[in-house]
């Protein structure tokens, strides 16, 4: 009996499936590590000309290192794990997403963090952004409004060893009074205005980042800066280099 093409493909699928199952966790982790490093290199290259890099010529090496270290696949739901190292947002349930890695890199970069900084995150979501921040600073405080997400992110952060992220379920509008002031605040949950209390909890010369757009499409980033005299200035930055005008006007 000759094997039909259908049978051939079925056999190869089985072989592939068996190969996948037989990979040891170490091998799988190595594989993810390679994918992650490739992705971060790619992001670094793509973002070289972004508006949000401001005066720098490229992303901060510390941010790139953090991105290369945090296992994004540990924060992605099982069914999307294989897409963990694609530069795209992925659904995490409850109408929320784990942000696009390039956007995470940009937002983190915009905060210009120092190791001793204390950071507040409004909208823990998957916990991935908090983990990236935790690679860079000593303490990250993160608030999530959806109880199920808050619980899951707390577990994932604990499992991956990010003990320096302190999570809480609750309303982020009033910030985290007991731990204020913060050197940096990142607001990943949509907001139609910037909560005044959050601004108050930002130290002079502190920075706040807010992505504007939808869950699957960040349209621009808003960087809020508090000056030494506590004046507030924002910058509206595109994730790409794009000028709406051609020619001289």
């Amino acid at each position: 009996m000759t094997r039909t093409p259908f049978l051939n493909s079925a056999v190869s699928l089985v072989v592939m499936a068996l190969t996948c199952f037989s990979l040891s966790p170490v091998q799988a982790d190595d594989d993810f590590k390679q994918q992650r490093e490739a992705l971060v290199e790619e992001i670094a290259e793509d973002l070289r000309s972004s508006d949000a890099i401001l005066d720098q010529s490229e992303l901060d090496p510390k941010v790139l290192k953090a991105m290369k270290t945090v296992p994004r696949h540990e924060f992605v739901p099982e069914k999307h794990k294989h897409q963990s190292y694609r530069n795209r947002p992925l659904p995490i349930g409850y109408g929320q997403t784990i942000s696009q890695p390039a956007i995470v890199a940009l937002m983190t970069n915009l905060l210009e963090l120092e190791t001793a900084d204390k950071v507040l995150e409004i909208g823990t979501g998957s916990g991935y952004q908090a983990a990236v921040l935790a690679e860079l600073v000593e303490k990250v405080y993160s608030i999530e409004i959806v109880p199920e997400l808050a619980e899951r992110a707390a577990e994932d952060l604990k499992r991956t060893g990010y003990d320096n992220v302190i999570t809480r379920h609750g309303d982020g509008y009033y910030g985290w009074e007991e731990q204020a002031p913060f050197d940096a605040i990142i607001v990943t949950a949509a907001a139609d205005h910037i909560p005044p209390r959050l601004l108050k909890q930002l130290k002079p010369e502190g920075r706040m980042v807010i992505p504007v757009g939808s869950r699957f499409m960040v349209q621009h980033l808003v960087l809020v800066k508090k000056t030494e005299d506590s004046d507030i200035i924002t910058e509206q930055l595109l994730p790409v280099q794009f000028v709406p005008l051609t020619g001289e006007h």
Binding site: D51, I233, L245, G247
Partner: peptide
């Protein structure tokens, strides 16, 4: 001043749209 864009796009756009260069500006805008 307070909410900075890469360039003062709104000012540039309005001034151009209210000037004689209006047609050219519309044609050149992306």
């Amino acid at each position: 001043r307070f909410h900075r864009l890469k360039q003062p796009y709104f000012y540039q756009a309005v001034t151009a749209l209210l000037s004689e260069n209006k047609a050219q500006f519309i044609a050149d805008y992306k």
